[in-house]
Simulated assay, not measured.
Amino acid sequence: MTDQPRDLDDNTCDLRKGEIARAWEQLVATARRTVADRLVVGTSGNVSVRVGDLVLVTPSGVPYDRLAPGDVTGVDLDGRQVLGTLTPTSELPMHLAVHRTTDARAVVHTHAVHATAVSTLLTELPPVHYMTGALGGPVRVAPYATYGTEELARNLLDALTGRTACLLQNHGTLTYGATLDQAYDRTAQLEWMCHLWLTAASVPGRTPNLLTEEQIREAGEKLSGYGQRDAR
């Protein structure tokens, strides 16, 4: 990053300051939620949200409860810092890879305990629940690579093919969505399914029943229309 980061007052990328400020507020709230819900410890994990061609990201090594409106940190899609003075998350290559190659508007990365445990045992989370369909199918495990590297970014993109979530071997989880709420919900669902599988698989002498590909597909189609619809 050779360009000097600019301040929010520079009206970066011609986006309205209010839009950036609101997105940053939502990002910080989501990051704090990962701690409150015990999906991360301390400053582990990170969150990003896209506003136009700008990607707002959590900064590296700063406790989320200390982040303020003036701490907004943003980069362009090439990774050049264009907002703020705090150093962006060390996992920036991973976030940018997802934003550049998918329709993601938000990305959530955690070190959730049950999901990370599963990542050390399997190459794919068995389909023990129909919510597998909401993530595009059985969740794959991306092979291990050192955190913050382009190798890790490449590995996770392979694991995300046709999916909105993946596990990172001996590391954690990554999910994306159209909004921060959707990305976070997918993270929570993934952690819950990993907990479910570990619980069921631990029963001596019994093997968890798994859903078929057709059952997962049907569930995914039904879940795509789940929730309230605009009645107007």
Rank of each mutant, 00 (worst) to 15 (best):
T123D: 14
H95Q: 12
P127L: 08
L198Q: 03
T146K: 03
E19C: 12
L180I: 01
C166K: 08
N209S: 12
S119I: 12
G42N: 08
E151F: 01
R105M: 07
G225D: 15
D71E: 07
R22I: 09
H95T: 01
D71C: 10
L122G: 02
P5A: 08
E191V: 01
N46Y: 05
P63V: 08
T43Q: 00
V40L: 04
T199N: 03
L121F: 12
S60N: 09
T85V: 04
H111L: 05
W192Y: 06
D185Q: 12
V49R: 01
H114E: 13
A21M: 04
Q189I: 12
M131A: 14
D53G: 03
V72W: 02
T120G: 15
T164L: 08
L190I: 02
H99W: 04
V82T: 09
G79I: 10
L56S: 04
R186Y: 05
K17V: 11
T164Y: 05
L86R: 08
L157I: 15
N46R: 06
L223V: 08
D185I: 08
T87M: 08
Q228F: 14
C13T: 06
L135F: 04
L157W: 02
A165L: 15
G74T: 01
P88N: 06
A219N: 12
E218N: 14
R163M: 07
S48E: 03
L125S: 05
L135N: 13
T187W: 06
V49C: 01
W192E: 02
S202T: 12
D230H: 13
L67V: 13
R100Q: 09
G205N: 05
L190Y: 01
L121V: 12
E221L: 11
S48L: 04
G61W: 02
A178M: 10
R50V: 09
T120K: 13
D7K: 09
E19G: 08
A183S: 01
M94K: 04
G177L: 03
D7Y: 13
P126L: 00
T43G: 07
A159M: 04
S90Q: 09
G61H: 06
L83Y: 10
T2N: 15
L86D: 03
W24K: 00
